[in-house]
Design a protein around this nucleic acid. Structure first.
Lengths: 162, 162
DNA sequence: TATTGTTATACTCTATAACTATA
DNA sequence: TATAGTTATAGAGTATAACAATA
């Protein structure tokens, strides 16, 4: 066996799986690098956390939504959504209107100030995405998105007992 | 302009960038799903946190290392490395030996128990990687790794004032 | 002076449990 | 009973500052 041949040290080394070879590890450190870059940009320019930015992005798209709809749209925990909404309401970037048919719930909408901010943050977000992902061709970016979607489904399935 | 044509509502909708379209968002939620799946596996089977598992993986590969070498190998903060090492020493999975030429430092090595655990965790880690990434062909997995490396370098450059 | 390791502290994200008010 | 939202609390990951021992 080549791996037991004392001369073939390089083969043995190459055979050993290293931390840097693990895709989950690569996924993790790359995502952290990208997220930190973006988080710092949102924080310094707009005083928004990532969670708050996500709520703004969805409300700008949907016009209005309840917190449970925001949970579905952002894949964030209901507690995280509640905290982010609370902070945005305090900053008067979003407002709560009573829900027409469910007294427990509210419709959340961007205020005029919130809409102004929305029209500022979305182009910046797209620009940052463009700059960071400029190292990928548009075909590669599309492939990446597709692979991430499949990986997410795969992981969801494995978690829920395949 | 098509986007101002009131009839072309679908075109307007399609034009609007949605949260789910942002690659940084996709990267984030996919990584979280994958990481949580793996973290739960390590926790329930071995009582290891991700940070601790990374230290084990590197020490099994390098045989010995100082904390600052572990910082470089894992891309973790020196505080995180110190905490993880402390926990592993308390569990007697790793041990500290005095450093030959630097009294401030120690050489960290796996104990016999630690080596036993190492030979258990690595095949499990590879198996989980294989199961999660089974939705990708080997070519796609290689492409993904390559893209992640480029993205990381791109983000590092942008952060450091490219 | 600079570096290695250490502790204290704090912030973000995430998650669970317990509660309220409605349904 | 179940659901929408809220609060309290805690764990995990990450980061900064301050410090001791050593280089």
């Amino acid at each position: 066996m080549a791996n037991r041949d004392p001369v073939a040290k390089n083969a043995v080394e190459a055979d050993r799986k290293r931390l840097a070879d693990f895709l989950p590890y690569q996924l993790s450190i790359t995502t952290n690098t990208v997220s930190n870059l973006i988080a710092e940009e949102y924080r310094s320019r707009f005083g928004l956390k990532i969670t708050e930015w996500r709520i703004m992005a969805v409300l700008g798209d949907l016009e209005q939504a309840t917190q449970s709809e925001l949970v579905a749209a952002t894949r964030m925990d209901k507690v995280a959504v509640n905290r982010a909404c609370k902070a945005l309401v305090e900053r008067k970037l979003i407002a709560r209107a009573p829900h027409a048919s469910d007294g427990r719930s509210h419709q959340l909408v961007l205020t005029a100030t919130g809409k102004d901010l929305y029209t500022e943050i979305m182009p910046l977000a797209e620009d940052m995405e463009r700059r960071i992902f400029a190292v990928l061709s548009s075909e590669e970016a599309a492939q990446l998105g597709d692979m991430l979607t499949r990986l997410r489904q795969s992981s969801d399935n494995l978690r829920d007992g395949d």
